[in-house]
Design a protein around this nucleic acid. Structure first.
Lengths: 151, 151
DNA sequence: ATGAACTCTATTAGATCAGTAGGATTAGTA
DNA sequence: TACTAATCCTACTGATCTAATAGAGTTCAT
């Protein structure tokens, strides 16, 4: 259950774009604002354009902008654009795996894990992220003290 | 958010051991019962012994057994034994990352994701798994029809 | 003694991850 | 028209991880 650098960088760039909706921001603007490696970020931005999360304009004064309003882009949309499906078991979707004998119920566990992750990442929009006001159900998860403690 | 083969194989082996508590099962018994590669499983079993999830006995008639009762081993215990921490961002624990500017609240999102995953994997025991009776909170997550549908 | 079984070290082929290099193309501006 | 800013595209690299195998050593019951 590792979050990749691609996913993280994508979300940081998108947050920055949501905070500056007036003008396009260039790859370098974004890289500097968030301290990200420019060329690597570039390939991430292209994924986001391909998936219709961003629009781009070439040439002088060009750059990237959100294709929809920040309230209509979920964190799941962004992560799937750069990394593919949110959750998988050995590369296969949870409902696609099955087990013999004693381990049969394991499929249900994987489905539950994916559902839990979806609940967070599909209910939280980029607008929520930049406003720092996460949905009620997400707030509840982080309000417990030991959500912040390493196990 | 990929579940590795190690984690999956570990849980399948542990489930099998919980279903046959009387006698030790050998690496080959387990590999055959679940259709897993024997030598690879071996290194996974050693991780589980090292972390005190299993006990082992060498020699003829030896094999592996659960070190505690199945109701006292959570799925999280097993997964952490073979893969390390359940959730991380670029290899760092969620509470250890921080972001400038517009992306500040991203830390909260990662903490929420980890908390959600923990809630499932720490509340479900190996006994629940083999009985096919997952905790109430986990059942709720998979009862929705579209938890089973690819997005 | 024999053989069944775990323990341990090493190795490997392939994939993925994070990141870089460099040129081609597009577009605004002087 | 030239210049420059910017995206687009292809290719490549080094490091790490993943899944798996090989083979020798050790323990123990019979």
């Amino acid at each position: 259950m590792q979050v990749t650098a691609r996913a993280e960088y994508a979300l940081r760039a998108v947050a920055e774009l949501a905070a500056e909706p007036e003008r396009p921001l260039s790859r370098n603007d974004l890289a500097e604002a968030q301290g990200l490696p420019g060329k690597f970020l570039e390939s991430i931005l292209r994924d986001l354009v391909r998936d219709g999360i961003l629009t781009s304009r070439r040439g002088a004064g060009g750059g990237f902008q959100l294709a929809r309003s920040p309230g209509e882009i979920t964190l799941a949309d962004v992560m799937r654009a750069v990394d593919g499906p949110l959750a998988a078991v050995r590369g296969v979707a949870p409902e696609g795996v099955s087990y013999p004998g004693a381990a049969q119920a394991l499929t249900d566990v994987w489905v539950a894990v994916r559902a839990a992750v979806r609940e967070i990442l599909e209910s939280t929009t980029v607008a929520d992220l930049v406003a720092g006001r996460l949905p009620e159900s997400v707030q509840r998860l982080i309000s417990s003290e030991d959500a912040w403690h390493r196990r």
